[in-house]
Structures are given as structure tokens and as C-alpha cells.
Design a binder for these strands. Structure first.
Lengths: 192, 192
DNA sequence: CTTGACAAACTAACAGTATTAGTTTATACT
DNA sequence: AGTATAAACTAATACTGTTAGTTTGTCAAG
């Protein structure tokens, strides 16, 4: 009624906040609408559907993650950059686990926008790998390896599959990244 | 009406099949009931809720996965066992990706039954690690590393975050596991 | 200043969701 | 043969996302 200056960006932003607060499982169009002081149906003036909305929220979250990764590695090289990258990923998942769930629940990345964003996602990873003297082919392979380690570790840590063991998770993380660092040196060593 | 011999096990089993066929996003109590030729409300004679049902389906899926892992590594040692374990994990996720989504979507593993099953999950991993001469502490750390690599790789491969690169995913996988194998040898080497 | 266009809110309705309470019914055991 | 019990049922509730059609507010052109 009051016709506030509401648009798609603000709706997506509010959705992200609500998901982060209450968890994705308790999120609904109705709750989002109430938070914005409009009726549920009015949301459809700004987003096409719940599915699309979650896609937008996910894209926004990925952008944030990539931004933090890039900030973390700037000015760094070699193992220092590698650790900084992995740590940024880990802390993002820790601090925004519900948003991370949204990203992970995407069915398939056949979306053109996401496909474009895939380049963004990989960019900081390739930047870190560039200091290890890999062939282009090996860069593609190791980019997969590194991303698998980062996301696998972050996911398990977040879902508590790790907790009840009598060893520090920080140390497990250090060992995991060190393992990748050693592998990278071995793979690129003969060209440096 | 016909009062078939329906019980919790059969319901969970049918739910798993339906999820695998149609995908978790298209699953509902109504569809499951129709498949079983009963009314939706009758399902609640066998399971407490949708959430619980998915928990049971997930537990069943984890059991299957662990069984395949154990079968894959039996009679093998060292790197051969390591590769066999990781491959079993990878192929399970590839062949049952919708069930894998159910497992991954568990909020937190504070469930006592899941906590118990956590031992099962880790058992084949520890068995593989036992050949590398690690201290007990290091075994706990490397169990986390290995599981992170396996699930991280499988997840990314399944969600297509890997596909559009001009290098083979099999080779990326080989490199990832080789990296862990080298790391394990380095970590356990001084005690063997 | 009025008119018109347009976006953004609304109401009303629909089909689908999980779930509960209360009731019938078939089977198995005393 | 009678009864207890588990498993089906019907009916109802409160929510879910979504669409169509309608009112309303704002901004720009005549």
C-alpha cells in the first residue's frame, strides 16, 4: 500500500538475510513477504518464482565468496596465497553456512548466468595455482583438486561430520592444504 | 483397504526408490502414498514425519555406501586400497546422486542413530589408512583429509562444476588421490 | 494541471503440501 | 468365537507456491 521503493535487488537481499537468520528449511515466500510488509503475491512483481529467487540468492552468495577469496590472496604468492585462499573459503562456509546450503542445493549448473559466474569462481583458484609452474593442462586438473579439498573440508566441518574426534580441526585443515601444496610442488617442480 | 503387508522398512525402501527415480525435489508424501496404493495419511502409521522418513532413507543410503566401500577394499592394501575406496565413493555418488543429496541435506548429525552410524562411515577409511604407519593422532587427521577429498570431488563432479574443461575428470581424480597417497606416505614414512 | 502509462501493491482463488484426530476394518491370538 | 491391535480409512486444518484480475500510487508528457 505505502509503495516503498522495493525492487528485485532488495528482495533478494532480504531473502538472503532471512535465510541466514532462520535457516533455509524455515524460509518461505510468506515469511519473506511479511518481513517486507507486503503480501505474498506482491513478491512476484520482482521475482519469477521461489526457485529463481533462491538462484539469485545463491549467485549473490557466490559473488561474496569470490570477493573474499580475491581479497584474501591479494599481494600473496605460493603457499601463503594457497592457505589464504583455502582459509577464506573455510571461514565463509563457517560464517554463512545456510547460504552455502543454498549454493550446494542447485540441481545442475546449466544456467547461463551461473555458467558465466563459474569463470569468476575459478579465477582466484587459478591465480593461486599460477605460481607453481604447472602446464595449462595440469592447472585445469589441480584446480579441480584444490576446489574439491576446500569444499569437501568445509562441508564436512559444517555438517559436524568431523567434530567428535579428539584432534583439532585447524590442524586437520593445515594437513589437508599442506598435502595439496606438496602435490603442487611435485607436479610443477620439473618446469620451474 | 486390502491391508497389504506394509511396514516401516518397505515404506523407507519405496521412498528411496521414488527419490532415486524422480529426484528429491519432486518427492512428496502424496506421491509415495499413491505408489503404495494407500492414502497419504496412512503413511503416518509407519513413519513419524517426512523429515524422519528422509532421515531413514539417508541412513539406508549410507549403509549401502559403506557396504560398497568395504567390498571394494577387501583383500587390498596400501595405494590399491586407497584408490578402490575413493572410486567406490565416487561411483556411488554418480549412480545415486539423488540419494546423496538426501544425505547431504541433513541439518546436523546430532541424531544418536547417525552418531552411531558415523563409526560405520569412518571404519573403511581407517582400515585403508592403517597401512600407512600413521600415529593414532595422524590417523584421525588424515581420515578427515581423505573424506574431504572424496566427497568434495564427488560433489563437484555430480553438480557439474567440473564438466566444461578440456581435461578428463578421471585424470583429475587420479591426481587427487595420488596427492593424498603421497601425503600419507610422507606423514607415515618416518615410522615404517 | 490534467491525462495517461506503468509499475507495484492488492484481493481472491487454486492446487498442492504435511499433518492430526477420529473412525472403520481386517487380521492374528487367546 | 471374541477381542485386541495394527493398518487402513475419512475429514479437516493450516500452510506452501503461484496465477489472474483489480486497485492504487507515482512520474512524465501534453
Amino acid at each position: 500500500m505505502a509503495k516503498q521503493g522495493l525492487n528485485k535487488e532488495l528482495v533478494v537481499q532480504a531473502a538472503g538475510k532471512l535465510i541466514e537468520q532462520q535457516g533455509i528449511s524455515r524460509f518461505s515466500m510468506g515469511k519473506l513477504a511479511r518481513q517486507l510488509h507486503i503480501k505474498t503475491a506482491s513478491l512476484y512483481n520482482h521475482v519469477e518464482s521461489l526457485e529463481k529467487l533462491l538462484e539469485y540468492v545463491g549467485e549473490e552468495a557466490v559473488s561474496q565468496l569470490v570477493h573474499m577469496e580475491n581479497k584474501a590472496i591479494e599481494g600473496k604468492q605460493g603457499d601463503e596465497a594457497l592457505y589464504a585462499l583455502a582459509e577464506a573459503y573455510r571461514f565463509f562456509v563457517r560464517d554463512h553456512c545456510e547460504l552455502y546450503r543454498v549454493i550446494m542445493s542447485f540441481p545442475k549448473l546449466d544456467n547461463p548466468t551461473l555458467e558465466q559466474e563459474a569463470g569468476e569462481i575459478i579465477s582466484p583458484v587459478l591465480r593461486v595455482l599460477s605460481h607453481y609452474g604447472l602446464t595449462e593442462t595440469l592447472q585445469f586438473h589441480w584446480q579441480r583438486v584444490l576446489r574439491a579439498v576446500m569444499s569437501g573440508f568445509a562441508f564436512h566441518e559444517q555438517s559436524d561430520g568431523f567434530s567428535h574426534f579428539p584432534v583439532e580441526r585447524d590442524e586437520s585443515f593445515r594437513i589437508a592444504i599442506q598435502c595439496v601444496a606438496d602435490g603442487l610442488r611435485k607436479a610443477g617442480g620439473d618446469r620451474q
